[in-house]
Design a binder for these strands. Structure first.
Lengths: 352, 352
DNA sequence: CTGAAAGCGCTTACAG
DNA sequence: CTGAAAGCGCTTACAG
């Protein structure tokens, strides 16, 4: 088992050599090669010449370390897990884009899993990710049921578990933007579409709305509050919620929707009921997804900096992975919304 | 080193036991435990009783195999790589959703990397993915520069490398849908917005359009052909392409755009130029992204079954991974488009 | 400055 | 029916 492979292997194209083979070609030990390739050459005072020879040969033979073996031995997988409700247009995707920006620059790869709010998946995935040796987890709009043995960053979760760092929007500011806008336009009978009960943002945002409304002396009429229901596409659930609102027969001149999809759905239902937007009812969305700008009419909405939130989540997680627990961020990382005024809102002309 | 850990380890919560520990608890060999847990129990005729005991204890101790170690030894990582141009609303995301549907059911995880059409990333990523021991790669709208030692499925690539299976839309049918629709509405001066040169679909789709146009005796006037340029968001590039068209001063009554984003951009430019859609110019998009339905006006478009294409890609790749090369699909897998008629097109009333 | 050897946590011939 | 031992391809004490 020692002489038959020199010739055979040099014939094979596309075969990635392993450390042993590379070391044999060079006539040095695997240890030395490994050290050079891992950048710890100077620490071990490996001669400049050896170093150069190793680098050259590695490039020539197109050597690439097997990350599995490396991870198994070193306990560093350079992999994280990302949990999202689903892969689809909108929220999760925008956050994922930001996460990716940061991770790939750092040499980290990530697994994405989507749970679609299924309870079994929510419980199972963290464990599956851990089996794959992720060094940390980013949970996007995803409630976590247990403490995990790796750093965790939660985007838009508000459970504030110890050992989980939250990235969260300033919902009070968001609510203030929307309500001041509507109030300034003369709206007093404002209807609200709350989010689904499974969305972590729902409660936080609603609390913020109630607080701001109280500050501003705006009445929150329970008969004008409705909630998204079901986990289907947002437009349809927005339609249902708006239809419910209309059925109650309580007059309103504006709607503040939980998200843009719900706002878009609301507008279609209003229109079908012969109610013009924004002439008779103003509608404010939330998120500023792509469709918001191209919708008919273009949506006035509160923009979440989703891409930025993804970036913040990834860089925070990387920081946590590389630092002592005592140095982890002690408070949620707060992100600022922006108000985008388009054409789905206008001055209230309805006499109440 | 043999007696001090019985008590210690049972105190630790959240510590995942390894095979060795599980075997020790049970008083059997790691081999046996491994066999039971991998479902090869019957093949090795392990007694039903042992089997049950193993399963029970594994559940009790919450044993989960270390996937890194398993993969390293067995050469099966149960991981694939997915290359996409970018993570953002629209095309890639929809395909990813389909891929995920299939993969997660099969116990496979996936890495996503986005290259943003950077040449260095395009060349580097396949190798990085291979270092992570992926068993196969799905390339979404991504040109591959070299042959890979693992199965590859390409969605919307048209290079037809040997050993790469393509999932492709029937572009001729797509072109026929759009052109018959416009022709039937009386349009004769039809402008075309081609895709970016880096998109694999651009050439295939354009060839199909030319073929169908020839079949139908529709003139393709070079002065009415323009092309998306730049890798920015689609709406803006669509605006630029349409402005170019307008500048040429050659009259047209309809536009067939490369994708919905370009169509949406086109409509905004036309409108700013005082041209009504669809009254004066009809616009047909491509893809049927979410915004298409909520756009003003709602977009008539050719729908690509993106989610289905993702599913097909994943199941084909899994099949290739598990079968002999001689049994791999020998032809591209063709997907059918659908025509969605909305309100951005109408009968041509312009006298030419 | 460099290397031999152990070991990461599994699976899998091989043996009985 | 079951187990001891080798080995996947690396990194890392330990030794010199």
């Amino acid at each position: 088992m020692s002489a038959e492979d020199g010739e055979g292997s040099s014939h094979q194209k596309n075969v990635r050599p392993d450390l042993k083979e590379l070391a044999r070609h060079l006539g040095v030990s695997q240890t030395t090669v490994s050290r050079v390739l891992n950048g710890s050459a100077k620490h071990y005072r490996i001669s400049a010449e050896t170093q150069e020879r190793v680098l050259e040969e590695a490039a020539k033979l197109n050597y690439k370390a097997n990350v599995l073996a490396r991870s198994l031995r070193s306990k560093r997988s350079h992999t994280i897990g990302v949990m999202v409700p689903e892969i689809s247009e909108g929220y999760s995707t925008a956050v994922l884009g930001g996460i990716e920006d940061v991770l790939l620059l750092s040499g980290y790869f990530y697994f994405v899993v989507s749970h679609r709010h299924h309870d079994d998946r929510l419980r199972e995935y963290p464990s599956l990710l851990l089996s794959r040796a992720v060094e940390g987890i980013i949970a996007v709009d995803t409630p976590l049921h247990e403490d995990l043995p790796v750093p965790v960053v939660a985007v838009s979760d508000h459970h504030h578990r110890p050992a989980v760092v939250n990235i969260e929007l300033d919902h009070v500011l968001a609510a203030r933007y929307a309500l001041e806008h509507l109030h300034g336009l003369g709206h007093r009978q404002i209807a609200f579409i709350k989010g689904q009960s499974f969305s972590s943002d729902t409660r936080a945002r609603w609390r913020a709305i109630c607080k701001v409304a109280a500050d501003m002396d705006i009445e929150v009429n329970p008969n004008l509050v409705t909630q998204l229901d079901g986990d289907g596409p947002g437009i349809e659930t927005g339609r249902v919620a708006t239809a419910t609102l209309l059925d109650r027969g309580v007059p309103f001149t504006a709607i503040f929707a939980f998200n843009d999809l719900a706002a878009i759905g609301a507008i279609t239902v209003l229109r079908e009921a012969g109610i013009q937007v924004p002439e008779q009812v103003s509608v404010v969305g939330f998120d500023d997804i792509l469709s918001a700008a191209t919708n008919n009419p273009p949506l006035t909405t509160v923009r979440q900096p989703l891409h930025e939130m993804g970036r913040a989540a990834a860089s925070t997680l990387l920081e946590m992975i590389h630092k002592e627990k005592s140095e982890w961020p002690k408070h949620p990382i707060r992100m600022l919304p922006a108000f985008v005024e388009r054409q789905s809102t206008q001055e209230n002309h309805v006499v109440s």
